[in-house]
Design a protein around this nucleic acid. Structure first.
Lengths: 200, 200
DNA sequence: TTTATTTATTGAACACCGATCAATTTTGTG
DNA sequence: CACAAAATTGATCGGTGTTCAATAAATAAA
């Protein structure tokens, strides 16, 4: 039986999120089980509820961890890119999703109760990712159009997301699309052309 | 107790799908229950399994119904549009999703077991929607580029999907995007510009 | 140290879920 | 009517999220 001196509250939280995230990566959102997480870290199911309050908050914490990893991955990939930065950014989006498909998919499988807003820290993590992409995009935009960066970032994130989602869920395979990343990158370039000198 | 002469097998299937779809619209994928469907149509849970074989096949049948309704809606909306057909198409995509958010979301919440392909008739329904969009898009493409229509259709469906998904799941609200439809339409136009005479 | 109080942890109990399948009922047939 | 075939049932199983009185452990007070 776990004694409370074995772990501080913060350590326990970390254990649960860590094992929860591992579980999520392994079995995916549909087969995820809070009981199983409790069993694996040697605590009872009741303790998980004491720490997180509800199943939904546990999932949010695990998804938050995924966002942390995603941001770290994006920044790492963008830090040491030599050539085409836009390609690198889209490629990083796709590659993270492919390498962590269950955890990545869980970000969008989970939905809050109608009308409820995500916790503050979750929103912060998501905004951090969007900001990283916006910085990247701003570099591709002529100075006179830099005010378009925020809206364009949101729109292009949605664009890339759509392609990535269809690539992972089988829709593209069903429709015979075999180069989703290239297609997404084309759409990003098309959008940027709107604000750049025309193709010659 | 329901007697089999009361309904043919096909009628029973129809009852289950109809009530199942109604349930899906009301409570969404996460709270959907096959038992509840059985109860509401006055049959036992066992009968549902005899008819559909598994929970997954029931969901596929219900999602197939959603695809039917979606296609019908798209065609109806495109049939009597006077002005901007592109706007009408994107608007129809968004509006159906908004008007049937639970059923529409369920299309993407459900995932087949790893490596399994969707049933033939489900693939056919999906292809029918894609084809309808492709016909629309082909009309916007210069004849010399009509060979690009299939790939461009897949890519723009993903693009619009991404925007619609973020609009429904709260991501856009979180990021301060208040005109997702307009953004999606911009991206569609940007992509078409690649194959048209440049803006003046 | 011993006692009292606060905090952490437990796990049985509850109400559900998808899934199974032997038993039953209903239907069709000879 | 009797019999075979088909349809329907629902108790049963193993699992889920959730609750919360009871217990154990840690801390504070005496």
């Amino acid at each position: 039986m776990a004694r409370r001196s074995d772990h501080t509250r913060a350590e326990l939280r970390e254990m649960i999120i860590g094992e929860g995230h591992r579980q999520m990566e392994e079995v995916g959102f549909a087969r995820f089980s809070a009981r199983e997480v409790a069993k694996r870290i040697g605590y009872s199911i009741g303790t998980l509820y004491n720490v997180f309050g509800s199943y939904d908050h546990l999932i949010l914490a695990i998804n938050g961890r995924t966002l942390d990893l995603w941001l770290a991955y994006l920044e790492r990939r963008l830090a040491d890119v030599k050539g085409d930065r836009l390609h690198a950014a889209v490629d990083a989006y796709f590659r993270f999703a492919l390498d962590h498909r269950h955890a990545w998919t869980a970000l969008f499988d989970f939905r809050l109760a109608e009308g409820e807003a995500p916790p503050e820290d979750y929103a912060v993590k998501l905004t951090a990712i969007v900001d990283a992409v916006e910085r990247e995009l701003a570099g591709e935009l002529p100075p006179e159009h830099s005010d378009k960066a925020p809206a364009l970032t949101r729109s292009l994130l949605a664009t890339v997301h759509g392609h990535c989602f269809f690539a992972l869920n089988g829709t593209f395979e069903l429709l015979g699309e075999d180069a989703p990343l290239a297609a997404a990158l084309d759409r990003v370039r098309d959008a940027l052309d709107r604000y750049r000198q025309k193709r010659e």
